[in-house]
Amino acid sequence: MYGWIWRHLPGNTWARALISLVLVLAVVYVLFQYVFPWAEPLLPFNDVTVDNQ
């Protein structure tokens, strides 16, 4: 999978490394900004009330 991505990136090794880094950061950003905020309420740490509102 990662090998396939690597082969399909343009440029020489340095350019590929740079693009990979940007891609990784983009994925982390999407996770922290959208995916984790959605998933976090599914964990029990939010239940602090006695009437479950």
Partner: peptide, 26 residues
């Protein structure tokens, strides 16, 4: 096999990131 192991590593990394998010980033 390679794709499967890569997927496992990816999932593990995401879980670690999620723990960081819950414990620290929130």
């Amino acid at each position: 096999v390679r794709t499967f192991s890569e997927l496992c590593i990816t999932v593990g990394t995401v879980i670690v990131l999620f723990v960081v998010y819950v414990l620290f980033w929130t």
